[in-house]
Simulated scan of single mutants.
Amino acid sequence: MPVYTVHAPPTVNRQPDIAPDRFVFVRDGFYVWAFVLGPLWLLYRRLWLALLGYIALVIALTVVLGAAHSGAGARFAVLLLLATLLGLEAASLRRWTLARRKWRQLDVVIADDTEAAERRFFDRWTRAQPVTAGYQPPVDRGEPPPVRRIPMPSSSLNTDIVGSFPRPGSSR
C-alpha cells in the first residue's frame, strides 16, 4: 500500500485557522511522469531549485561524457539512470520544497489511493481537534416525532375522481 505524507501550509500572522482544503498529500513511491517528462513535471509542480539542479546536472553530464568521447549508448544509459533517479526521488524533492516553503508535515497515512488517504487523515484529524465552545453534537432521540392526523370531511370531491377518468372498478 502506498504511503502518503500530509502537509499543511504555513500559518499567516500566527492564525490558528488551518484551511483543510489546502492540505497537500504527497505519495511516496515511483512517479512515472517524473521519469518520462522530468523537466516538465518539475515545472508543473513548481520545483524551481530542483529543476535548476536537474538542468545543471544534465549539462554537466553531457560535457563530461562528451569530453570522455563516450558513445551514444553510454550517454543514453547515463540519462536513463538520471531519469530513473528523478522518478524515484520525485516525492522527496516535493517534500523538500514544501519544507523549504515552511509547510508543516502533519501526518503519515497508509492507504490505497489519495481519496482513501484523505478520508483516513480527516477522520483522525477531526477526532483530535478540540470542540468549539457552544457547539453541541445533535442528540439522537430515536424515532421521528408523531404526525398529527386531521380528519377530512367526507364529500363527493374526496371520493370521486374529477375529470375523464372514472373510479377503478366502477361501471363505465
Results as ranks from 00 to 15, higher is better:
Phe165Gln: 14
Leu88Phe: 04
Ala77Thr: 10
His7Phe: 14
Gly134Val: 08
Arg141Cys: 03
Arg124Gly: 15
Leu47Trp: 06
Thr159Gly: 06
Phe122Ile: 05
Gly73Gln: 15
Val108Glu: 14
Ala116Asn: 14
Val26Glu: 01
Ala83Arg: 06
Leu82Ala: 10
Thr84Gly: 06
Phe165Ser: 08
Arg75Met: 15
Asp17Pro: 01
Glu143Arg: 10
Tyr135Leu: 07
Asp160Cys: 12
Pro168Asp: 13
Leu37Ile: 09
Phe35Thr: 03
Ile150Cys: 03
Leu106Ile: 13
Trp41Ile: 04
Arg119Phe: 01
Ala116Ile: 05
Ala117Glu: 02
Trp41Gln: 02
Arg119Ala: 06
Arg124Ile: 03
Arg148Ile: 13
Leu47Gly: 03
Ile150Leu: 10
Leu82Asp: 05
Asn158Ser: 07
Ile161Val: 04
Val63Lys: 09
Val109Ser: 10
Gly169Asp: 14
Ser92Leu: 07
Tyr135Asp: 03
Met152Leu: 14
Trp125Pro: 01
Pro144His: 04
Pro130Asn: 01
Gly66Lys: 07
Pro137Gly: 06
Phe121Cys: 07
Tyr44Ser: 11
Thr114Asn: 11
Pro144Phe: 08
Val108Leu: 09
Gly71Met: 02
Thr132Ala: 15
Leu43Cys: 10
Arg119Glu: 10
Val147Cys: 01
Phe35Lys: 01
Asn158Asp: 12
Thr132Lys: 12
Arg127Asp: 11
Ser92Tyr: 09
Gln129Gly: 04
Val78Arg: 05
Ala50Arg: 09
Val109Trp: 08
Pro138Cys: 03
Ala111Met: 06
Thr11Trp: 00
Ser92Val: 11
Ala56Lys: 03
Met1Tyr: 12
Val109Arg: 06
Trp103Cys: 02
Ala74Gln: 15
Gln105Met: 15
Met1Asn: 06
Leu37Met: 08
Ala83Trp: 03
Leu37Asn: 02
Asn158Glu: 04
Val32Thr: 11
Glu118Asn: 02
Leu106Thr: 13
Ala50Leu: 04
Pro20Ile: 07
